[in-house]
Design a protein around this nucleic acid. Structure first.
Lengths: 194, 194
DNA sequence: CGCGACGTTGATTTGCCTCAACGATTGTGG
DNA sequence: CCACAATCGTTGAGGCAAATCAACGTCGCG
């Protein structure tokens, strides 16, 4: 059952009656996404929230200089959405693209609204999720302020080895907010030092 | 009534029955905080959430080099807490200090737990708050990646003129993630250019 | 008054970027 | 299946943004 991983994920966040869990998971549609496919392009209104079953996605923004800037990656058991666009029905600044052929569970904006109304515990579920996500983003901003590029690189590959092993150096560099040339120089230094 | 601003704030987020609003606000205790006072010091467990009625606070972290790094400011109608410490009952990395004599409404951890249980709409309220906060932190990280220090400075003073006017240049620089010397040079350039 | 914090400035250094070039790898169409 | 293009990682030269360190006058406050 494709929803099983989602069930486990939710059980890890809150205690929840089986019936509610079923009702929630029934709103999510499994879908396979081919490598390179965009689930969202900037300018579109994000009409879904996704839960990744397998594979890998990147969420990025194109800045004024035309450069792609990767905000984050989403792998198995992570979420996929532009909260701002999804909740405020406004055109997104973000792009979400599959880095490999992936499987996701998708829920539409209208189904999610219904869920909020009909299954009250969903509020608690997403309250908890957003709270955790908020902490993570705060910590990341702290790291960006306090750490050098090399330290951030080490933190990333140590904290998310299974993600970073899927990525090219260019993608990692973009996520860290540095150029891929400079990342290459960081890696050389690590090599020769050790 | 000190809770009036909080009521207005909540009404701005969700539609809510007056009785629930009363029940929520009754859990918040007004308190005056003298300039310089720490509401939270790193190592302590954050035992409160606060809503600022007037005044100004800074939330900062001390990095390994011993430098103070300001994460954000909280002024009237903003919230004040270390979510991570508050929710996970773990020692905080953060410090929260009043930059001027301020008035806040405080709710204890146990009272908030009760609120979540007894007034279900509180889940929805905080789900909405965290969701908005998450968007704000994401946008800030994007700005840190895509903008130069000068652009970030302009954005800050234009977006939050009433906050920045209360702050010293050192505090603004710390928030922007630059040195105060460099901020001084940015300001000089602005002066002579215009 | 004197002290400490502040904003400013200059000289120097450093972290990181830009641009350009190269071989290696991957992927793709003929 | 191979040839070609595209993308990748690497490297070097040079430049710029921002940090560091040190010094100075100013201001508010005890």
């Amino acid at each position: 059952m494709p929803q099983d991983r989602l069930k486990e994920h939710i059980r890890g966040i809150i205690q929840i009656p089986e019936a509610d869990l079923e009702a929630i998971c029934a709103c999510f549609q499994p879908q396979t996404v081919e490598k390179g496919t965009f689930l969202l392009r900037h300018g579109q209104i994000c009409n879904f929230e996704g839960f990744v079953l397998e594979g890998c996605f990147r969420t990025f923004i194109i800045d004024e200089a035309g450069r792609e800037n990767i905000l984050h990656f989403s792998v198995r058991d992570w979420w996929l959405m532009d909260i701002d666009s999804f909740m405020n029905r406004r055109p997104s600044d973000l792009n979400i693209q599959a880095l490999e052929t992936s499987k996701v569970l998708l829920i539409s904006q209208s189904d999610k609204q219904s869920l909020y109304q009909e299954v009250p515990i969903v509020e608690k579920l997403f309250r908890g999720m957003f709270q955790k996500a908020l902490v993570a983003w705060q910590r990341r901003l702290i790291r960006n302020h306090c750490l050098t590029a090399k330290e951030r690189y080490h933190h990333f590959i140590n904290t998310y080895p299974e993600i970073s092993s899927k990525l090219t150096d260019r993608q990692i560099a973009s996520y860290l907010g540095i150029t891929h040339e400079f990342l290459s120089k960081i890696k050389r230094e690590i090599r020769t030092r050790t």
